[in-house]
Computed example of a mutant assay.
Amino acid sequence: MPQKRKRYDKQFKIAAARVVLGGEMRAVDLARELGIKDSTLRRWAQEHGEMGDPRVNLVDGAFDVEARNRLWVDGIAYIGTGEGWLYLAAVIDAFRRKVVGWSTSTSPDMEQQELLLDRLLERVPEGAKPVLHSDMGWQYQHEKWTRRLKKARIAQSMSRKGNCLDNGATEQVFGHLKDEFFRGRTWPDFESFKADLDAYVVHWNTRRRQVKLNGLTPEEFRSQSLVA
């Protein structure tokens, strides 16, 4: 294990990254021992480690990040209707709770995930290198998913098996969505549902005020952070 020191050269960063990626220590614990921020250690793992390894959890429950586009959280909401199940795949910025990409489908297949990635990768700001965290669903271990993330230089992080609380950021957003948008409503067809859901996501990002963002919307919170 790397020893604490005042300055960190490239070889030291590589060694620390391997400790985290190899599962020897959690990023949060090693960062505390080295006297650095866990976000710094996650960045080292992203820069010097192997991305797209489904065994790696770069987040370890530390969803409180200091800036936008550092940590994105992925998940799928299962929405039951009288006509069957509908599926919302969404990626949320952990810093401002903004939905940065989403797709809706009647089947949770790779076609839906690739559409999500198409939309998501269009929105990655120049120079940004976010960590994308998810559970261990089969979609996130699929070769098409891991290959495209690696090509885009987005580090993949996955929860440990059976840790249902480690994806709390998406579950909070999905919970509000079901309470505020879906519960008690019906739609004549999938296209009507999809159009209304798209409108709700825009509402969530631009008009829905949130206690965790000091009463601001995700877009207002983003503007405030840019000024600060």
Rank of each mutant, 00 (worst) to 15 (best):
R148S: 07
I14G: 01
G127H: 11
K4P: 01
P2K: 03
S157L: 10
E47G: 00
E180D: 09
K212W: 12
K13N: 00
R207E: 12
K10V: 11
G52T: 00
D135V: 10
E126M: 13
D93L: 15
L88W: 12
R147N: 04
R207Q: 09
V19I: 11
L132M: 13
F193L: 15
F221W: 15
A195L: 08
Y200Q: 05
A169H: 08
L30C: 07
G80N: 12
S39C: 07
P108R: 11
R97F: 12
G184Q: 04
G101K: 12
A155T: 03
Y78R: 07
R70W: 09
K144I: 05
V65W: 06
A128G: 09
N163G: 00
V91I: 15
S223I: 13
E171T: 06
A77F: 05
N167Y: 06
Q224L: 14
H142E: 03
E180H: 12
P2W: 01
I79W: 08
L165K: 03
I154S: 04
E126P: 12
W204S: 04
Y140F: 14
G22R: 02
P54Q: 00
Q224P: 02
V227W: 11
G49W: 02
F193Q: 13
Q11M: 09
I79K: 10
D198F: 11
Q210F: 08
R5Y: 00
F182K: 13
P125S: 04
E219G: 01
A195F: 07
